[in-house]
Simulated assay, not measured.
Amino acid sequence: MSSTNATPTRPKRIFPKTTGTTALWRHRNVLRVLVQRDLAVKYQSSALGYLWSLIEPMGMAGIYWFIFGVLYAKENALPDGVSYSLYIVSGMFAWMWASSAMSESTTCLTSQSTLIRTMRVPREVFPVARVFARFAEFLAGLPILIAFAIFGGGTFSWNLLVLPAAILVQAMLLTGLAFVLATINVLFRDVQRFMRLVMRVLFYAAPTIYPFAMVLEAEKVPHWVKVLYQANPFVGIIEMHHYAWIPGLGTLSWQLVVSSVATSVVVLFLGRWLFYRLEPTVLKEL
């Protein structure tokens, strides 16, 4: 009687549709520790400490305010009584969160390879921690935003409810991008160098330092470029941040918001799927 030798097969990895969020919640203490460690390490040798998270965006805002607000007087494109300084600061703080989160999440796996191989936690916590750490810096700048709104013609009404929505959409988009960037940078180390150019392009491809209406009203810009420009999810997100303080802009449309929300959800899902799919290969490379 012959016996058949069964060849052991590796069980197929099934993408978990819900356990990603619940796993992060179960390990929220680890996530909190990683965020605190990231902030402590970043500013441990600095005399000013966390103030640098405010000085950098304020310094950049001051430079662009002088160029576009003084030399080129772009206040004319804003509602009466609203200073260009409020517009640029509200956009700059949102952009600095995005820029820092994307840049630092790119290297979050390669720079912590030993910790990743030894800790028994979902690897998603490492890119997510970078997004949350930069969000903590954004929160630290809210008092400055409020001060600029008070003295710069901002509005404190129902429009402020747009701010939590903008933060949520931006967090989803940045988390999805963090998954993608962290993964592909392990496999292709040139990504972190290429990101310098990408970040520069994205900065000028969103209405951070110039009014969104200028793009819509520009006669020399082809219609298809305007459509492609508005498809950039950062355009809708930055405009939501502006609208939270300056509702009189009149450039925030439901189509722009829906486009940013839909893109952010898709990027979040695809980013997490890619992270899970390539996790075995990434761990081998680390």
Rank of each mutant, 00 (worst) to 15 (best):
T19S: 14
S45Q: 14
R26D: 15
L249Y: 04
L54G: 13
P11C: 12
V221I: 15
A149W: 05
Y72L: 11
G141E: 07
F156N: 14
I184V: 15
E219F: 05
F275K: 02
L145H: 02
F126N: 03
R200G: 11
W65H: 02
R277N: 11
R117I: 10
A218W: 05
P11E: 15
I238K: 00
L31K: 02
M102Q: 07
H27L: 03
M58K: 03
A147F: 02
M96F: 08
E137H: 15
R13W: 01
Q170I: 01
V121S: 04
Q36H: 11
P127Q: 08
V169Y: 02
R37H: 13
G250W: 07
K284Y: 04
K74W: 12
S2A: 14
V225F: 15
V221Y: 06
T19H: 05
V267E: 08
D80I: 03
L283H: 00
T4P: 01
E75L: 06
L181Q: 01
I184R: 08
A205H: 02
A262G: 15
I146W: 05
V169Q: 03
S260Y: 02
F138E: 07
P211Y: 03
L31T: 08
F156A: 13
P207D: 07
G154Q: 02
R272V: 04
L145P: 01
A166R: 00
C108G: 08
S113D: 11
H223S: 14
N185I: 06
L31D: 03
Y87F: 12
A6L: 13
A205T: 09
R277H: 14
V266I: 14
W254P: 13
F68A: 10
S253R: 11
W224L: 09
R134F: 12
L249H: 02
T183C: 12
T155M: 05
L181I: 08
F135A: 13
S103G: 11
V121M: 04
I237Y: 00
D38Y: 00
E137K: 12
K74Y: 14
V131I: 07
E217M: 07
A133L: 03
M96Q: 09
R200N: 14
D80G: 07
F234N: 14
D190T: 11
L71Q: 06
M199H: 04
R32H: 13
T208L: 07
F93Y: 05
I237A: 01
D190R: 03
A213K: 07
E104F: 05
